[in-house]
Design a binder for these strands. Sequence first.
RNA 1: GCGGUCGUGGUGAAGUGGUUAACACAUCGGAUUGUGGUUCCGACAUACGUGGGUUCGAUCCCCACCGGUCGCCCCA
Length: 420
Amino acid sequence: MIRLPRGTQDILPGESEKWQYVEATFIDICRRFNYQEIRTPIFEHTELFQRGVGDTTDIVQKEMYTFEDRGNRSLTLRPEGTASVVRAFVQNKLYGLANQPQKLFYNGPMFRYERPQQGRMRQFVQLGVEALGSKDPAIDAEVITLAMTFYQSLGLHSLKLVINSLGDKESRENHRQALVNHFSPYREELCSDCQTRLDQNPLRVLDCKKDRDHKAMKEAPKILDYLTDEAREYFDQVKQYLDASGIRYEVDSNLVRGLDYYNHTAFEIMSAAEGFGAITTLSGGGRYNGLVEDLDGPETPGIGFALSVERLLMALENEGITLPVNEGLDVYVVSLGESSKVPAYALTQRLRKSGLSVDKDYLDRKMKAQFKDADRNQAKFVVVLGEEEVKQQQATVKDMATGEQEMVAFDTLVDYIQSK
RNA sequence: GCGGUCGUGGUGAAGUGGUUAACACAUCGGAUUGUGGUUCCGACAUACGUGGGUUCGAUCCCCACCGGUCGCCCCA
């Protein structure tokens, strides 16, 4: 038997309805916030992610699904959504459209080559938004608010929003230098990853779990202390907007996102519920001024976030929230004897045409078994067709909840059922 | 990439170095010649992840591999 590839999953009936519900809710929230859908390819030129996500990131260094096609092009299954959206923004000159900022959302599978565990798959689905063309701190707050509103509308309440500012270019450069100066004396005591990070991207040393308790970590220079006046003012305004709309958050100066393109606002939303798995991050995002230029577009600020549907469903499960998705069948048509088979089939189609959800037996089962099947499908009504009914052009309609039944003419059947 | 743990029918789950591998659920049929969710009876699948090894003989012991699962690193 051929099994599915490691780290992928089949989403079967019973589960797929939840996905549909979550996606429909997301689309509705995006509509309310006036974000429009963009669909980009699930593979891109490898270079897009190398330049967009950053060569020093774990994603690019060890997690990409990269392959060569028959024309010797190096392609990569997208590990995240932002690079593709920005590429499409530049390529399609969306910066030239009248409606700015461009507020976009996406929904689709992402791919990272990692060892699967709870909440981490090789193919996983992200819902995300990107707002391109505005450097108003209000839109940072809007993106964060959109994410929180979405989670809350599904009923999640054990959430923790963590925000930080990574500052602008000047802030980051000053901080970077301070980090190098601070950690260099301890270089030999740090883990091998951190020694590399110290050279390539010292900010990420702060993110290390191994060296978390090293004495140099506690006294490490905080980015918030190195913000330029401008960057500080920006961060203060973002917080002010969040406060104004009643969004509660926590500032964590060690929050460092794993992608190179972030600056200014960075945030993560985590599940704070007891008994959640080892991975608690439900979504993350931030501002990425400069990325559009890096990908050969005009100077354009941007901010966005992405969330994992898999982790969202885990969080719902963990909080005991069931989505309203279990709708039974309206009608199940039971037929008796050879002569009523064709009329039963015709009647089924007729009922479906009216908008009702209708099914019948296709395994030539006895009546008793057909009723069982109707139960399995949670049918509200069973319509019985035997020789007598066909002759009289009437059907026996049984209300499965009350057990009551009566004869109804074919022509008034739809009205009868809809009025109940 | 590293580590823990697990791998028996459609599902859940016992069990043993040796001629028929429990049980339960599900499914189908009957009791009830045209009526479900209860009950009783019956039927059912040639189920021990793959490949080696030890042995007279392995589903059981050993090894490797594959896969699931959880964790580390990191992230959504």
